[in-house]
């Protein structure tokens, strides 16, 4: 299981409710005055921060997809009216960045735009990104890389949630395909699951004639929960539906990687908000644009804010009693259709 140090590294994320609750209680027991001191320090820092000068910001979207637009809206709202923000769609990847001379900073929304800007923006130009999956794998961490917010909810936080919802968990099942992103997920997941003291049962979809065959093997391994991560080479509406139906039939809970996934029939999962991604990017951008910015945070991938989602109808079907502290913080789906 993750240590408290690890959790501190996720300061911007809305950590799993149990983690937050347990951590807060523990800290308060150790030193009840610390939270108050921290709050006072935060207030002081806020009041003494230098005002942010009006800036020219250009936002590049990876495409016109709605979530990217929503992220741009969140960024625009968070930055406020004092700045001039131009939103552009990324042109053909081979083209050069065409920036106006007065641009102070650039924001990339989505992986494609981030990769493109990373290759082409001059070093002097400050920029941040959001809505990017696996920024480390793309070389967007470490200096002189930019900072930004990823879509990767820490695996430890996900496992923590599973542990709270299903304390009897000993083995976690997942699907992957050879040589794909899901294969890399498998390797990362194995370490995290091992750290949690559990066993990972990963099934290679490519070793089966059909997706149904892979599911059969997964269930034959007698897993306690199926863990899903966003992998387009595996999950689409048809395969998600097949997985959820088969899992319910065998009374195996599924951890969904998105709110729609949970709404469709997972027991619990996590949900991202595209606008919140934009807001988080704006917060990083404000730091970058401050005159006294030392670029200490350069190359830092911030974890995303996420919500915990539970499907009460599925819990009912599976006879799972979810703990009250989880239910209090979670977005609850009460019907099989919500």
């Amino acid at each position: 299981m993750p240590t408290d140090d690890r959790k501190d590294g996720h300061s911007r994320a809305l950590l799993a409710p149990c983690v937050a609750l347990r951590g807060t209680l523990a800290r308060r027991r150790r030193c009840g005055v610390l939270p108050w001191l921290a709050a006072a320090a935060l207030a002081a820092s806020t009041t003494t921060a230098e005002p942010l000068a009006a800036a020219e910001v250009t936002v590049y979207l990876s495409s016109e997809a709605v979530p990217y637009r929503q992220a741009a809206e969140g960024l625009e709202r968070r930055l406020g009216a004092g700045h001039s923000i131009r939103v552009k769609s990324m042109p053909e990847p081979q083209l050069e960045v065409d920036l106006a001379p007065d641009v102070d900073a650039v924001v990339a929304v989505g992986t494609a735009a981030a990769v493109w800007l990373h290759r082409r923006l001059p070093d002097r130009m400050p920029w941040v990104y959001c809505m990017v999956a696996d920024p480390a794998g793309l070389g967007l961490t470490g200096r002189p890389a930019p900072s930004g917010v990823s879509t990767d909810v820490p695996l430890e936080a996900q496992l923590e949630l599973i542990g709270v919802a299903l304390p009897a968990t000993r083995s976690v099942g997942m699907l992957f395909r050879t040589g794909s992103g899901s294969d890399q997920d498998r390797l990362r997941s194995a370490a995290a699951v091992e750290a949690a003291g559990w066993q990972l049962e990963a099934v290679n979809v490519d070793q089966h004639e059909s997706f149904a065959g892979a599911l059969r093997e997964l269930f034959e391994r007698d897993v306690d929960v199926i863990w899903t991560q966003p992998a387009p080479e595996i999950y689409n509406p048809a395969t998600v539906r097949s997985l959820l139906l088969a899992a319910l039939r065998r009374r195996v809970p599924v951890f969904g990687y998105s709110t729609p996934f949970v709404r469709a029939g997972s027991l619990l999962g996590i949900g991202l908000d595209a606008e919140r991604q934009g807001e988080q990017a704006a917060e990083i951008l404000e730091d970058v644009l401050r005159p006294a910015a030392s670029r200490h945070g350069a190359g830092r991938a911030v974890d995303p804010s996420f919500s915990v989602v539970v499907n009460l109808m599925v819990a009912d079907k599976l006879d799972v009693e979810l703990p009250p502290q989880l239910l209090r913080r979670a977005h609850k789906i009460t019907g099989s259709d919500r």
Binding site: S63, P67, G110, T111, A112, Y235, S258, P260
Partner: peptide, 9 residues
Amino acid sequence: VGHELLLFE
């Protein structure tokens, strides 16, 4: 182009 859009499907 990244699989982040899958999170919102």
